[in-house]
Computed example of a mutant assay.
Amino acid sequence: MHALIVTAHPVAHSLTHAVARRLADGVRDAGHSAEIADLAREGFDPRFTEADIARFLRQAPAPADVLAEQARIDRADTLALVYPIYWWSMPGLLKGWIDRVFSQGWAYEEKDGRDERRLGHLSVHLLAIGGADMRTYARHGYFGAMRTQIDHGIFEYCGARVITSELLVPAGGEDAGRHLDRAFDLGRALLRTQPRGCVADAA
């Protein structure tokens, strides 16, 4: 089985990339394959352009770079996003990847006033890396906001099952090592069968 791990951080030696690599290590240690899609290094264009609008309106085929990303997801049994929290959300590069790649006709279909969810085969794992402590995020309701906006508003709308939705934050001491250990353990379990609708508790 195969996992696609997508990350969006401009610095290769960042904690975000380290977590993504350890996640991939765990997947491989469990006997599966993993691919890391480094959107910053690969130069993915996140801008939702006139070509993307034409695709949404069914006036033109999807741009080649979008088709390539959709094919990459189609090859995967599970999708993991590893990203830093910027302004209480994901980086613009990652949001633009979702805006362009999770397009109508591929991720979902709107017909006769009804929505057809097309990614029911896909399980999703979200690892967000924050700079504030857990009490700050909890006090301001970030858990609910993240799950409403990302888990439900994006992936569940397309029929994908969000299995893991975790927030990795500073807790003092050996934060980085603890997060890397968690990523490896999660990677080893990433492709295990999960019951439909199961969502893990936030870390």
Rank of each mutant, 00 (worst) to 15 (best):
A62H: 01
A62N: 03
A71L: 12
R72C: 13
I73V: 14
D74C: 05
D74R: 13
T78F: 00
T78D: 04
T78R: 02
T78E: 03
L79P: 12
L79Y: 11
V82C: 05
V82D: 04
P84E: 01
Y86W: 15
Y86E: 06
W87E: 04
W88C: 02
S89M: 11
P91K: 00
G92S: 13
L93G: 05
L94D: 06
G96D: 03
G96E: 00
W97D: 09
I98H: 12
R100T: 02
V101Y: 05
S103T: 15
Q104S: 15
Q104C: 14
W106D: 07
W106V: 06
Y108L: 08
E110I: 15
D112S: 14
D112F: 09
R114I: 02
R114S: 09
R114L: 08
D115S: 13
D115K: 12
R117T: 13
R118H: 04
L119E: 10
G120P: 09
L122Q: 00
S123A: 14
S123C: 07
L126H: 06
A128H: 02
G130H: 07
G130Y: 10
G131W: 05
A132L: 06
D133H: 08
D133T: 06
M134I: 14
M134T: 11
M134G: 09
R135T: 11
Y137D: 01
H140V: 10
G141P: 05
G141Q: 06
G141H: 09
G144T: 03
G144N: 08
A145I: 01
A145H: 02
M146I: 06
M146C: 06
R147H: 11
R147P: 01
R147Y: 01
T148L: 12
T148N: 12
D151P: 03
D151V: 06
H152T: 13
H152E: 14
E156H: 13
E156V: 12
E156L: 08
Y157P: 00
Y157T: 07
C158I: 14
T164P: 10
S165G: 07
S165D: 05
E166V: 07
E166P: 02
E166C: 08
L167P: 11
L167F: 14
V169W: 09
